[in-house]
Simulated assay, not measured.
Amino acid sequence: MSLILDKVSAQESSKANNAQSNPDAVENKESPLLEVNNLSVKFRMYEKGLRQRELEVITHLDVSIHKGEILAVVGSSGSGKSLLAHAILGILPVNATMAGTLKYEGELLTPRRQKKLRGHEIALVPQSVSYLDPLMRVAKQVRGEQGTQEQQRKAFARFALQEEVGRKFPFQLSGGMARRVLVATAVLGDAKLIIADEPTPGLNPEIAEETMRIFRELADQGCGVMLITHDIDLALKYADRIAVFYAGTTVEVTPVENFLRGEEALRHPYSRALWQALPQNGFHPIAGSQPYAGSILTGCRFAPRCAQISRECAGEVPMRRVGDCEVRCVHAS
């Protein structure tokens, strides 16, 4: 318990310091840098013969991120976290169809605007190192079109990359080294929104912590950072809010302090189950599994695994404001 309270105290102290160094932070909270409203993503797929069907993998997904904050997106594999990143950047596969609203700095994020901003104002730290160009030397990839050699050297120094790494091709790098190169590439420029998709797996603890400190510095300077991660403990040390995904939708968005204070501060049953599943909280699993993306479900997607299930759960369950969080649950209070 003392460890949790220490973390809460450290978070509040850090945020107080951030507010003093960035007096516009509070004002920025009222104007989201990125807004995702009622997003759905479907894939056209072939069944037997030439018969097609649509597989809905994301539905009614709502999330926002503000200047000056790190939003950690958590949830089990297959819950739609990486697909959200690809939808924002406009790099979904050609067989995907998307509905809903994406806004960046208050304006619609159209395909044309996505192409213009991608890699400049909106940067991606991808999950897979296969995003590196196998035919281009590392230094040139990190610099990109507008970076300088001096910026590249400083980025290399921050991520413990030797100068000789810049002369190599991606296939000559270890997995951890390639991941550090990806992060360096994304943070080198003047991006306003950084989407980091699992940036720390394969990194040793010191480099992982340094990576998160850099994201925190960028947020404190006014960037918005969307951190997609399975490492909840690491996210709790640096994020401002936590968005919990389940079966392709948002079930709760809450201040990070609520996760630190314990399950009683969380509003959605799945958020509480996620908290209970952390090793330091007993590693308690729950029965059942996340529904397959092809399952046709109505109402609450978590209902089959929830002890609070009732008739109301079978109807539409919109996101609503409850206290200091947003939650998709008819029983939340």
Rank of each mutant, 00 (worst) to 15 (best):
E12Y: 06
A16D: 08
N17K: 12
Q20L: 15
Q20C: 10
S21Q: 15
S21G: 13
S21D: 08
P23I: 09
A25V: 15
A25M: 09
V26W: 02
V26G: 08
N28Y: 15
K29S: 14
E30C: 06
E30G: 13
P32V: 11
L34C: 06
V36H: 05
V36Q: 06
N38G: 15
L39H: 04
S40L: 02
S40Y: 01
V41A: 03
M45Y: 06
M45H: 12
Y46M: 14
K48T: 09
G49H: 03
L50G: 07
Q52M: 11
L55Y: 02
E56P: 01
E56F: 02
V57P: 01
I58N: 02
I58E: 01
I58K: 03
V63I: 13
S64D: 13
S64A: 09
H66I: 01
K67D: 03
K67Q: 12
G68Q: 02
A72H: 00
V73M: 08
V74N: 03
S76M: 08
G78H: 04
G80I: 02
G80W: 02
K81W: 03
K81P: 04
L84R: 02
A85E: 00
A85V: 03
G90A: 05
L92R: 10
P93L: 06
P93S: 12
V94W: 07
M98A: 07
G100M: 08
G100C: 05
Y104K: 12
G106M: 08
E107F: 05
L109S: 00
L109I: 08
R112T: 12
K116Y: 10
H120T: 14
A123W: 00
P126Q: 03
S128Y: 10
S130H: 09
D133Q: 06
L135R: 14
L135H: 13
L135W: 13
A139M: 15
Q141F: 04
V142Q: 10
R143M: 11
Q146C: 06
